[in-house]
Structures are given as structure tokens and as C-alpha cells.
Design a protein around this nucleic acid. Sequence first.
DNA 1: ATCCTTTATTTTGAATTTCAAAATAATTAT
DNA 2: ATAATTATTTTGAAATTCAAAATAAAGGAT
Lengths: 151, 151
Amino acid sequence: MPEKREFMNRFLVEIFNDILRTEEKCLAECGYGNLSIRELHVIEAVCLGTANGHNTVGDIAALLGVVPGTLTTAVNILEKKNYLIREKDTADKRIVRIFPTPEGMKANADHSNFHAQMIDTIQEALTLDEQIVFVKALGSVADFFNNKKHL
Amino acid sequence: MPEKREFMNRFLVEIFNDILRTEEKCLAECGYGNLSIRELHVIEAVCLGTANGHNTVGDIAALLGVVPGTLTTAVNILEKKNYLIREKDTADKRIVRIFPTPEGMKANADHSNFHAQMIDTIQEALTLDEQIVFVKALGSVADFFNNKKHL
DNA sequence: ATCCTTTATTTTGAATTTCAAAATAATTAT
DNA sequence: ATAATTATTTTGAAATTCAAAATAAAGGAT
């Protein structure tokens, strides 16, 4: 079945681009037309970080895999758009903590909902046994990228 | 099993970024340090398009999902880097066709090889039955994004 | 045959995203 | 107190992207 192989490859190189594109389009339809996917992922990381106290500029930058300066410019824009706010840490005044505004929290909640629907669609299409196989397969994809002993 | 659900979601939102990052790093180690993932995908699309005669600026732009002007600037850079060349169509002189140079073809071949290894890793981790389930699951993810009646 | 419309691409102007490296500010250690 | 370290921002530069205007060529209408 060489077409199975081809299908996997096509999925892994193409469909992911569609995911990002569709995600952005859905957000736009939801009234978040002024947010790009990248910006949304910054908001998502800030919400995640705020929940467990890891919401400094350095924390969020590391979580997103960008240098701190990159995050600074992103936060500048998202602060202007009223999705995030900055606050100096009272104990250590070098540290800047980032928090979502109510608007930011709402955007994140709506985005989570989108992902939940995506997972629902997948789960509905699979039996419980099949779901387990799918998770196992995803694990081996993740392994491939974590153990970079290739090429 | 709520953690299965969570794992799927994490994969679909996070691992994708790792894929692109790892891909870029592997290419750099392969001697393509002057090529970004985006640029590589342009080269890939040109190689694909050249194979079936759909290699005009408009064709490649549509394949990549960007406006023609965006592709023009990308090709400007990749022509300078010697991975692509432009050629005016002789029959219709409005049309510009884009071809890979030998360098471009080699980069594309090395990139394909990377993907082949990725697929190998997945297939080695799964039985034949499991591979079929995996493909089916990927299909339902694709469906979710093609039938965008959600949100 | 000439003018108008359509089509294909490029150019322009602007915004975003990114990084590396320098600058700034605050804390900790000597 | 001064030096070293740490956290963040600023700066300068390159990529990436789009929308819309400009250019160029082809095709059709009168």
C-alpha cells in the first residue's frame, strides 16, 4: 500500500497548514479578526502560564520557543489591542509578569472550544480501541522529533 | 481517559511547531543553513509544479495559498540564492514559469528523504492494522478542516 | 486596426514576525 | 561598594505577508 505512505506524508506536510489557516478563519468569524494565530498562541501561553505562576516574559518566551525580545514586541501589540497587560513583580522589580485581560481570557476560552470540537470530531470517527492506536501513533511521531538522531 | 483527549490536543497544537523547528534544524545540519522552512516549501512546490507543467507564478502561489505578490518576493530571494530560476513563457509572454536549479532539485530531494524517514519511524512503531487505523484517524482530522461547518 | 477588457505578474507601501546584539535596570555576590 | 549576574527592552536588520496600484501582454469588439 504505497498510497497509505503517501497519505501520511501529505497529511503531515499539508494538512497542518490547513489547520492553522482554518483556525485563523474560524477565529475571524468568531469576532477575533484582529488576532493572528501567532498572537492567539501568545495569549494561550500567557493564560497557561498565569494559571501556574510561570508568566514572566522569560517563561512565556521559553514556552513559545522565541527569544525574549520577540515576545516583548508581541506583547506591545497585544497590550495595545487590550488582550494582555503587563505588571512589574513587586518582589523583584526586574521581572515583568504578563496577564490576560478579560478579553484575552474570553479569546482563549473560545479558542479552546474550537480545539475541543476538533477532538470531538476525531473521537466520534474512531472506536475506543482505534483511539488508543491513534494516540500511540501520535506518540511515535513525537518521538521522531524528540530523538533527533536522524539525517 | 481524559488524558487521551488532552494528549491528542497537545499533539495537534504543539508538536506541529516542533516538526517545523526540527525540520529547519535538520536542513541546516545538511548544509542548507541559508534556507528557511518557508523557502524550502516554495522550492518543493516549484519542483512539484514543474513535474506536471503547473509552474507559473499563479499556479505556485495558489498551491502555497499565498497571493502572487508574496511569491514574487520569495522567488526574488531564491533566485539570488541560486535555488530557482525564472523563465518567460514563449507562447504567452505575460506568463513567468519558475524552475528549480540543480541546487534546488537537490535540496528538494534531501527534504523528501527527511519526510521518508519520518514516515518510516511511524510505520515501524505500528502494526499493519494499526497503520490503517492511523490513516483513518488522519482522514477524520482532514474532514474536520475541510467541512468547516463548525464554530 | 484600434480601443477596451481581461489576465499575469511585479511593484509599492505598510504591518508583523523574527533574531542577534546592545542597552537598561535591578538583584546578588564578592 | 563594586562587580557580576539576571530580566527585560530597545535597536537594527531581514523575512514574510497582504492589499492595492502599476505594468505588460493577450484577446475581443467594434
